[in-house]
């Protein structure tokens, strides 16, 4: 009865991903604290682990307030979109051979499509709040996503050309000999940068830029609606880290340990890297970010496709 197995996989993936994302709040706070010479949350439960539970309970019991001046349906829809799109992306992620909700043959395209849809949540959230800070945040998000979506997709085309498939499991299997991070190093760097921008994490947290726009697009959000943006961001981090692992670091491939464990270890390493970035870097201005995107990143991504294509053709 394969549909039972399907449902179990869906539920397990949903459960694991959401809990992982919530757990990341604790991981991020402890790691940041470590790098910043302080303790971080260490009071609730062993090592402060129950902080996550405390935070979740707090979010659920906070007043879920919709400002009277907001555009109500859109205001409610926006945080749902962010959760929906990142969770949908996880349906095509293969965690290990055979462990995936659905191993689509256009898996990579599906992920890119979902992440493009995800932008709407930020823009709509910023617009529906009818708050000047939110509006500016939404505008910045739109500008940032436009600039970075373009070369994010293009950066991956090198990998696709080499494998000849959009299926994520096929891409992993193609890395038996060599991880794509070596032949596609440029693509890796470009995707990494675009990935940070995509998840709106420091140094590219320009749409929320605390010191400038208070909380940017989600200034007016509270309670669990804010929580959706919050968790959505962490799920996004997990997603981008998982993608980097799959596309450039051989996914579940690795000696000795079980495949699933390899996948988790690699993904976790990238998650930590994301957090380290946040601890280390200042935030560029959004016009600088855009000019880097269009003037440097996009030409590099195009050059990468050209060179990869030429080499693949020549090798034939």
């Amino acid at each position: 009865m394969p549909w039972v197995i399907h449902i179990v996989t869906v539920v397990v993936v949903l459960f694991v991903v959401l809990n992982l994302a919530a757990g990341l709040i604790w991981v991020e706070r402890r790691l940041l604290a470590l790098w910043q010479d302080r303790y971080g949350p260490n009071r609730v439960g062993p090592f402060g682990l129950l902080q996550v539970a405390a935070d979740t309970i707090k979010l659920f019991f906070k007043e879920d307030w919709v400002p009277p001046f907001a555009d109500k349906p859109v205001f409610i829809l926006a945080p749902a979109i962010v959760m929906l799109t990142v969770l949908m992306s996880f349906t095509v992620i293969p965690f290990a051979p055979g462990i995936a909700v659905s191993d689509l043959n256009i898996g990579l395209l599906f992920v890119l499509a979902m992440s493009s849809l995800g932008v709407y949540s930020v823009v709509l959230g910023g617009w529906a709040s009818d708050n000047k800070y939110s509006l500016l945040g939404g505008l910045r998000a739109a500008a940032q996503m436009l600039s970075y979506e373009v070369f994010m997709g293009l950066a991956l085309m090198g990998v696709v050309i080499m494998v000849g498939s959009f299926s994520l499991s096929a891409i992993v299997e193609a890395q038996q000999k060599i991880w794509f991070v070596i032949p596609q190093f440029l693509g890796f760097i470009l995707f990494l940068i675009a990935g940070v921008a995509e998840t709106r994490r420091l140094p590219f947290d320009i749409p929320e830029a605390e010191s400038e726009l208070v909380a940017g697009f989600h200034s007016e959000y509270s309670g669990m609606k804010f929580g959706m943006f919050f968790i959505g961001e962490y799920v996004g981090v997990v997603l981008i880290s998982a993608l980097i692992t799959l596309l450039f670091f051989g996914g579940w491939l690795g000696p000795g340990l079980p495949p699933l464990l390899w996948f988790i270890i690699k993904t976790f390493a990238f998650i930590c890297f994301f957090i380290l970035l946040r601890a280390g870097l200042p935030r560029p201005r959004f016009d600088q970010l855009m000019s880097w995107g269009w003037k440097i990143m996009l030409p590099l991504a195009l050059a990468n496709i050209l060179v990869t294509g030429a080499v693949v053709l020549w090798a034939r």
Binding site: Q36, D37, L202, D205, L281, P282
Partner: peptide, 16 residues
């Protein structure tokens, strides 16, 4: 100042 331009960590170091 570092925090104003988006750098999170220095403020903890300098306050230490």
């Amino acid at each position: 100042f570092a925090q104003d331009v988006g750098q999170l960590s220095p403020v903890f170091f300098t306050f230490n």
